[in-house]
Design a protein around this nucleic acid. Sequence first.
DNA 1: CTGAAAGCGCTTACAG
DNA 2: CTGAAAGCGCTTACAG
Lengths: 332, 332
Amino acid sequence: MTAPRPRLADVAERAGVSMKTVSNVINDYPHISAATRSRVETAIDALGYRPNLSARNLARGRAGMIALVVPQLDMPYFASLARHVIDAAHGAGSVVLIEQTGGDLQAERQLVAGEFARRVDGIILNPLAVGAEEIARRTDQTPLVLLGERTLDGVAPHVGIDNHAAAAIAAEHLIERGCTRLGMIGASPPLRQNVRYLGFRQAVRAAGLDLDQHLLRPTAGVRGIDGERAVEEMIDTGKPLPDGLFCATDWLALGAIRALHRHRIAVPQDVAVIGFDDIPYGEASTPSLSTIATDREQIARRAVALLNAPDKAAAEEVTIDFELIVRESTAR
Amino acid sequence: MTAPRPRLADVAERAGVSMKTVSNVINDYPHISAATRSRVETAIDALGYRPNLSARNLARGRAGMIALVVPQLDMPYFASLARHVIDAAHGAGSVVLIEQTGGDLQAERQLVAGEFARRVDGIILNPLAVGAEEIARRTDQTPLVLLGERTLDGVAPHVGIDNHAAAAIAAEHLIERGCTRLGMIGASPPLRQNVRYLGFRQAVRAAGLDLDQHLLRPTAGVRGIDGERAVEEMIDTGKPLPDGLFCATDWLALGAIRALHRHRIAVPQDVAVIGFDDIPYGEASTPSLSTIATDREQIARRAVALLNAPDKAAAEEVTIDFELIVRESTAR
DNA sequence: CTGAAAGCGCTTACAG
DNA sequence: CTGAAAGCGCTTACAG
């Protein structure tokens, strides 16, 4: 019925050369005469030959696959990250296996412990729950690169931005726009270990402003509704509201704005709001959202590169650029 | 240095059985004595054996991979879809190779023509640009399942919702809320072939309402800014605005709301707005967005299943449920 | 129920 | 520059 798939041997036969020669041509090895190369290429085209990746990977002793582990692919920050990791891996001849942990500690643990052992050539992990000790203890040899907010004490190579500096710049931006009572939502506890909170606090103190505890609210989750609740709680206290609010992520910020609107509090006039991540919807929302944008294409590229640079600097820290993006939510 | 990876042969040796027996255990074939099975399982655990997928796929003559082709992974609808396709494929023992076309006709064409020929076991494609004829003409044998708004004349199996009915229900919802001048943005031209437009129109006419041409605006792109421009253009005409606006996607709807707000037109009081897709941000935006939600988990599951049901109904049409979700943007 | 062996389609020393 | 052959680690008829 259906034509049998042409193999490398078929190409070799048709071109009148050995399999080795065909392999050399395909893999772009040097020292092939132009004439031979073109004979081989003609045969490849005529037969419509495409290498069998399973066979190649088996012979090469690699999986041809890297794993990208994120909490949820449909969180836009991670979707965008995944997009760039796929592109970067493509350039390195690998496909990307996307695994979703749901931020579940157990799932992250199994991954770190070696769930993917020898199934993939490397793992890019954005950890939410798992701790530095567990990563340090891992016996699985699969190369691992960490992404995300937490540096995790250099137990593995990490690609990320300087979250302390970025949070400070967000706070400074609010201050520069005239805010004097700053609040923050979304820092996961404990606050003292939250890098974005620490950067935020430093900037606020450096400006000589006070930090009111009731304006600092961790959130249980990462969704818009969690930001909404945090702001509702703030309002429920009956104490004075902030005039500038830093949200640890854009998604939380969207929810925060909803809560403010519900109480007829104008953004940015009454409260200026800034988020973090630059998700695609930030500019489509009303008001459009000021934020810190990270260069996700660069993060992806560096992470993939690090995976392929085995031992070189066991736990290298790669710092990526970020950028303050000013939109309507802080325009005042 | 690093321990050599245990192979099936090692397991067989340790358990004192043949490779075939180990294979039988791993693949859950019947007719293995409990004693043998447990001996093999003990050996697997002791050695930490994991099958080499490249070898397995090579021997089985499959790729172990399906391709999911979407315009852009970081469009939330597709991110969410991808998430579920990954989960569904996982259940079928496949990994998902995600390919992004950017909605580019050339890219879609190459895919349909066989860019993935024999690299993957099946392709799930959400086509934007490519036409039915081209799909009908394809010679590549790779199973193909279509997703999305366009049915494409049944040239391939298709999983989707009844877009005509869904658009009609969106329009009826606006009418039921008292809207009498309905508009629509985002139907890609030609309008007469746009299923969502046709459903919308039918509902409007069935209610005995007129359809004003200047309230019907296709959009050049799919982003929020495109919806914003469409509404700006509508306003620029100086003609009466709609009191109910149906947007072909949620993202466009977010942009539309921005434009309305900019002109101090209240949503939903002056204009009720409804979108389509139920993207994750719809409920976090201000006002939260009424929309049509499709069951993406179901879409993914059926699409993967169809890929594995080879010839059975060459071009089956699978219709998935949808649901009207009423939120603030039409609450009046 | 289980064994011995061929075969999947590549890559890669090893020779020439 | 090119060939003949082994080997990657599975699965699967074919025998028993």
